[in-house]
Amino acid sequence: MFTFTQLKKSTTRFALVAVTVGALAACSAVYRNHGYTPTPDELNEITVGVDTRDSVIEAVGAPSSGGVLDESGLYYVATRMRHYGPRAPQIVSRELVAISFNQSGTVKNVERFGLEDGRVVTLQRRVTTSSVESSTFLRQLLGNLGNFNPAAALGQ
């Protein structure tokens, strides 16, 4: 028969092992895939100078995004991200397939880019600031006390 102390020790050991296993499992990497790029076999079906935008979409599927203008290219983007515990997600791989068209609407070029081909592009954000946002509510309230004119409030 187990005594109370033996039972308490075995329960404590079990709880310690369970917490350790749970902590190790929580810190394992989780991978997520976003987007789609056509396989090389699907891209081989596209003939430069012959296929049009509609035939490309029929052969390899709809793109992740397109160009701003109707005559611009089709872009297929796939990203693989690693989530590891409480850390911010990291991009492990990114692939981009760009299919460009000439003026007549036929395929001009098919290009594949990887993460190693990329450049860091700095985005610029322009925000108009106002004096209202830079001061607190209390400061605005106290600043308006000196501007109060009782005669103007009474209509005199």
Rank of each mutant, 00 (worst) to 15 (best):
Phe2His: 05
Thr3Ile: 01
Phe4Arg: 15
Thr5Glu: 03
Gln6Glu: 15
Lys8Asn: 15
Lys9Asp: 15
Thr11Gly: 09
Thr11Tyr: 11
Thr12Phe: 03
Thr12Lys: 02
Arg13Ser: 07
Ala15Ser: 07
Leu16Met: 03
Val17Ser: 03
Val17Arg: 08
Ala18Lys: 01
Gly22Gln: 06
Gly22Thr: 03
Ala23Lys: 06
Ala23Ile: 01
Ala23Cys: 06
Ala23Leu: 11
Leu24Met: 04
Leu24Gln: 00
Cys27Ser: 06
Ser28Thr: 07
Ser28Arg: 06
Ala29Asn: 03
Ala29Phe: 00
Val30Thr: 11
Val30Leu: 11
Val30Gly: 04
Tyr31Gln: 04
Asn33Met: 04
His34Arg: 08
His34Gln: 12
His34Glu: 15
Gly35Met: 09
Tyr36Val: 10
Tyr36Glu: 15
Thr37Glu: 00
Pro38Phe: 10
Pro40Leu: 05
Pro40Thr: 04
Glu42Tyr: 01
Glu42Cys: 02
Glu42Ile: 01
Leu43Thr: 05
Asn44His: 12
Glu45Trp: 05
Thr47Tyr: 14
Gly49Thr: 11
Gly49Arg: 09
Gly49His: 11
Thr52Val: 03
Arg53Gly: 01
Arg53Ala: 01
Asp54Cys: 00
Ser55His: 09
Val56His: 14
Ile57Pro: 02
Ala62Thr: 13
Ser64Met: 02
Gly66Glu: 15
Gly67Lys: 08
Gly67Leu: 04
Leu69His: 07
Leu69Asp: 13
Asp70Tyr: 07
Asp70Gln: 10
Glu71Met: 05
Ser72Asn: 02
Ser72Phe: 03
Gly73Ser: 00
Leu74Glu: 15
Tyr75Ser: 10
Val77Gly: 02
Val77Glu: 14
Thr79Glu: 14
Arg80Ala: 09
Met81Pro: 10
Met81Val: 13
Arg82His: 04
His83Leu: 07
His83Ser: 03
Gly85Ser: 07
Pro86Ala: 11
Arg87Cys: 00
Arg87Val: 01
Ala88Asn: 11
Ala88Gly: 02
Ala88Ser: 06
Ala88Phe: 06
Pro89Glu: 08
Pro89Ser: 06
Val92Arg: 00
Arg94Pro: 03
Glu95Asp: 14
Leu96Ile: 13
Val97Met: 03
Ile99Glu: 15
Ser100Gln: 05
Phe101Ile: 01
Gln103Ser: 12
Gln103Asp: 15
Gly105Asp: 14
Gly105Arg: 04
Gly105Glu: 12
Thr106Val: 12
Thr106Leu: 07
Thr106Gly: 06
Lys108Arg: 14
Asn109Arg: 12
Asn109Thr: 13
Glu111His: 02
Glu111Thr: 09
Arg112Thr: 10
Leu115Glu: 07
Leu115Gly: 08
Glu116Cys: 07
Glu116Pro: 09
Asp117Phe: 03
Gly118Gln: 11
Val121Leu: 08
Leu123Tyr: 07
Leu123Asp: 11
Val127Trp: 00
Thr128Pro: 04
Thr129Glu: 14
Ser130Tyr: 05
Ser134His: 09
Ser134Asp: 14
Ser135Thr: 13
Phe137Lys: 13
Phe137Val: 10
Leu138Met: 13
Leu138Thr: 15
Gln140Met: 12
Gln140Gly: 10
Gln140Glu: 15
Leu141Met: 15
Leu141Pro: 07
Leu141Gly: 07
Leu141Lys: 12
Leu142Asn: 12
Asn144Pro: 06
Leu145Gln: 11
Gly146Gln: 05
Asn147Trp: 08
Phe148Leu: 15
Gly155Leu: 01
Gly155Cys: 02
Gln156Asn: 12
